[in-house]
Design a protein around this nucleic acid. Sequence first.
DNA 1: GCTTGACCTAGAGCCGACTCCAGGTCATAC
DNA 2: GTATGACCTGGAGTCGGCTCTAGGTCAAGC
Lengths: 126, 126
Amino acid sequence: MPDSDTALTIGQVAERTGLSVHTLRFYEREGILTHPVRRDGGGRRLYTEHDVDWLTVCVILRASGMPLPAIRRYTELVTAGAGNEAERLTLMRQHRERVTNQIAQLTRSLDLINYKVGVYEDILGA
Amino acid sequence: MPDSDTALTIGQVAERTGLSVHTLRFYEREGILTHPVRRDGGGRRLYTEHDVDWLTVCVILRASGMPLPAIRRYTELVTAGAGNEAERLTLMRQHRERVTNQIAQLTRSLDLINYKVGVYEDILGA
DNA sequence: GCTTGACCTAGAGCCGACTCCAGGTCATAC
DNA sequence: GTATGACCTGGAGTCGGCTCTAGGTCAAGC
């Protein structure tokens, strides 16, 4: 059972999060990690399970269209610790609205797409 | 009642489709129109209601994430006329799958977002 | 002792989809 | 006759989000 002491290489984290090693380094530069990554003697990154959990959250936020600056801001708030929950809530609510709007828009688009699929199926089925 | 003879300027089309005049010219260069736009004596574009209808379809396809090359291909098929419905169907089905996957992904992301919103609401409400 | 492979940095490059710019034409309003 | 404003072209610039390159370190296996 992996506990929070487990040290993971960047390659292992890439595999677990689905991000490339390039993207992991890029996210770090962009301030998308709650604390600087530990390094081994040779300067190599050592990630924890905690980092993987955080990155997994970030992956989900990205996948739902949250821009990197917003994720960075959220990261900053989490890093700063308790006391800023109001802003975190605002951020999440804003994002929730974007996402629900996006789902609504996609669902509407689906009507047209289904209609077109139906038209072509009819033509080909006749 | 606007019929198919109505001539619209690029500005009017921009207003109706929600695209900018820049984007309309760009789409034309990209082959996103079923036929070359008519021009008046001074070389200005004259669109028809038919063009607006087509562009409206394109806007919906774009909004649901269809890449411009796919829209161009679809345009080519429609321009070529009857006989290629099988490929049009394939294109639309592929896109439908992308869209339904995207909706599913967004809906899953929404679980996390709602969870986070709930956490912060609890903290702030207590 | 040398090859291999995973890692490091700083910085350049790429891609999609616009978006804007410079410099010009033309019709209408004053 | 001139100013305004909508339009034209070709081409450059922007932006977000990666993605890759060059050149290097280091540990383990043979």
